[in-house]
Amino acid sequence: MPPLVLQERMYDRRGGVVPLMQFDDLLRELIASGGPMPQEYALLNRTLRQLGDAVRAKVIARDDVLAYAQDITHRHLEGTMQARALGKKFGYSGDFEMIEAIYTLQTAQEPHLRRWDLYFHSQAAPNAVRNRKAYFHQLLHSHSVGRSKAPLNVLNVASGPARDVREWVLDNPEREVFFDCVDAEIHAIEHAKKLCAPFAQRVELYHRNVLRFLPAKGYDLVWSAGLFDYLADRSFVYLLKALMAVTRRGGEVVVGNFSDFNPSRDYMELLGDWVLQHRTRDHLRELALEAGAAADSIEVQWEPEGVNLFLHIRR
C-alpha cells in the first residue's frame, strides 16, 4: 500500500482504523524519543494487544496493519530484529539467522535502534526460544548420564544454526554423543559447519528437506525445536510418523511447538509477519495419537515461559 494511501486510511477515524491510529501515535512518540525504555514496554504491549483485538474482531484488516508495519519499519527501524523478521531473507521470519540472533541476544549498534532490539528480546517468544536451547541440553544430559559404553545417537531436525549442538559438545567433551543435523536451508548448513568445525567427528550435517529425507539410522533421541509449528496438521502427522520410525526402542522423540498461550503473538504476527501454527497440549496429544503413538507413551511438557510446548513420545 503506498504511504499516502496508508496515511489516509490510518487517520480516518471511522471504525476499526482508530486502533491503528492510536498505535501509530504511540510508536511515533517512541521513535522520536529514541526507542522504548523498559518502563514503557507494558504500555506498548497493551496498545499492540488492542490493535490485535481489532484485527481479530475484523474491524481492521491484518493486511492493512502489515502494510503499515512494513512502511514504518522501512522508514525508521531498518537494522532492527523487527526489520529482520519482516524482511524474510530466506523466505520466512524464523530463519537460522534470526534464531542465532535470538540465542546470542544480538542488538543494533545504533542507540536508537538498540532500544527496539532490547524490547524485542524482552518478549516472551524470544525468551522461550532461548529456553528451548536449555531444554534440549537438559534432554541430552538426561539421556546420556549414566549411560553404558554405547554412544548416544541424536537426530536434530531443522537444526538451524546448530549453536545448541556446539554449546553442548563444548560443555560435555567427555560424553559419547553424536549428532546428525538436518536442515533444508543450505545457508544454515554452511553456518552450522563453521560453528561445529572443531567437532566434525561428532556432528554430521545434511542439507535435506526432512519431509522427503531422513538419515537411515536408528536414534536414541530425536529432537525438533522449531519446525512443527510451521506445519499444517497433515504434514505434522506425516513427519512425526517418520521420526518415530527412525527412533530406537527405548528412545524418545521430542518436538517443540508454540502453545496457544503466547503473549508475543500480536507483536510477532502484526509487526513481524511471523505466523506460526499455535497448538494446545490436547491438540498435540491428538496429533501424536494420529501418528500412531501409544497413549501411555505421550507426554507434553513446556519451558519456563509456558510459550513453547514439547511433545514427548517414548518408543
Rank of each mutant, 00 (worst) to 15 (best):
D71V: 02
V5P: 00
H283T: 10
A294Q: 11
V165S: 02
H74C: 07
A216K: 15
V5N: 02
Q201W: 07
E100A: 14
E299Y: 00
D63I: 01
S33L: 05
V129S: 06
N257Y: 01
L243F: 06
A128T: 02
L284N: 06
D266W: 05
L243S: 10
R13P: 15
L20I: 08
V55D: 03
V275Y: 04
G256D: 09
Q106K: 13
E299V: 01
G35M: 06
T104A: 06
P198L: 05
L118C: 11
A85I: 00
R175G: 00
E97I: 11
A125D: 14
V254S: 10
F236D: 05
P263E: 02
E110I: 08
D171K: 15
D180N: 13
P2L: 03
G256H: 09
R166A: 14
R62I: 03
F136K: 00
Q201N: 14
W302S: 11
Y11Q: 11
S159Q: 05
L311M: 08
V154T: 06
R208K: 12
L43I: 10
V222Y: 08
G251F: 03
Y92L: 05
T247P: 13
R56C: 04
R315D: 00
F199S: 01
V255H: 09
L6Q: 15
G52R: 04
V145L: 10
G52C: 04
Y267C: 00
R208V: 04
I31P: 08
W168D: 14
W223D: 03
P161D: 12
T107M: 05
D12H: 15
H121M: 10
V253W: 07
P198W: 07
D25G: 00
R9M: 08
P2Q: 13
A184Q: 13
D25K: 06
T247S: 11
D164R: 10
W168K: 05
A42R: 13
Q123C: 03
E8R: 14
T80D: 07
G94H: 07
Y92S: 04
Y68N: 03
H76P: 03
N257K: 01
M37L: 12
A242Y: 01
A294D: 11
P173L: 14
K58H: 10
Y68C: 01
V129A: 10
A101G: 07
E269K: 09
R147I: 06
A125S: 14
L44R: 09
K194T: 11
L44E: 09
R114F: 03
R28F: 12
R49L: 08
Q50H: 13
V253G: 09
V237K: 02
G218W: 00
P151G: 08
L66D: 03
A57G: 12
G160S: 14
R281N: 08
Y206S: 12
A42Q: 12
G79P: 02
L113M: 13
W116T: 09
A85T: 02
P36F: 02
R56G: 06
H278P: 02
A32H: 14
V55W: 01
W274F: 05
D171E: 15
R248V: 10
G306Q: 04
E29T: 10
E305F: 00
L287F: 02
Y11C: 04
G272I: 04
Q22E: 13
S297K: 13
